[in-house]
């Protein structure tokens, strides 16, 4: 039989963990040319509360998606103001994959994100406002519906409203009914809005019976 059992423990042989694991050593490793080394450094920096600045700096120039994911995860875990600002900046990136990674990460830290939702929902960039609504989807926060109603009552951009209606059809209550009816009038010539509002009204209405 050719089955064997491990005779010696696996050596963590890769060069990526040979560098010093103190704060300065890890910051230096963030610029290592080996992407695995950078990813490990980004992960190990989670134990240092002062790591947000070097991580955000690296995030701005990092090209490898796996390293970026690790940096975003670590920033989310540190969760201080600088870290959150760094993640939010990614929403403005030209790269779709980075924007979407940032949204995913922000969805998982409701306490840190809730205080900035208002400002994101009022951002001048309509795409950022859409992403803010995307973040609301997974936010376990009592104001989610209130924010969504505010969006469909006030936002002028059809796609921001459309994104909010999609979510309201899942989380909306009778509190949303008026705003939804108004939205349908406001965008009466948009077939998609009419479709999605009808769907949301139906889903919410049924729940009341």
């Amino acid at each position: 039989m050719a089955f064997i059992k491990q005779t010696a423990p696996q050596v963590v042989n890769e060069d990526e963990r040979t560098a010093s694991r103190d704060f300065d050593g890890l910051c230096a490793e963030l610029n290592n040319e080996n992407q695995t080394a950078r990813r490990w450094a980004a992960r190990d920096l989670v134990q240092f509360s002062q790591a947000s600045a070097p991580l955000v700096a690296r995030l701005k120039i990092e090209a490898h998606p796996n390293v970026r994911t690790a940096i975003l995860d670590t920033l989310a875990q540190i969760g201080d103001e600088q870290a959150i600002t760094g993640i939010v900046e990614c929403l403005r990136s030209d790269e779709a994959s980075l924007r979407n990674e940032a949204i995913e990460v922000l969805k998982n830290i409701p306490e840190q994100v809730a205080p900035i939702i208002d400002s994101l929902l009022n951002d001048s960039d309509s795409d950022v406002r859409i992403f803010a609504v995307n973040i609301l989807e997974s936010l376990h926060h009592e104001d989610v519906e209130k924010w969504l109603i505010q969006v469909i009552e006030q936002d002028e951009h059809v796609n921001v409203c459309a994104t909010a209606v999609d979510l309201l059809s899942e989380v909306g209550t009778e509190l949303s009914l008026n705003a939804l009816e108004h939205l349908k009038i406001r965008f009466a010539d948009e077939p998609y809005i009419c479709f999605s509002v009808e769907l949301a009204l139906k889903r919410i209405g049924q729940g009341d019976r």
């Binding site: 779709a96 994959s97 949204i103 992403f131």
Partner: peptide, 11 residues
């Protein structure tokens, strides 16, 4: 669609 989690439309 373009913007989606895990893998976007370009990917």
């Amino acid at each position: 669609d373009i913007n989606m989690p895990k893998m976007d439309g370009y990917g």
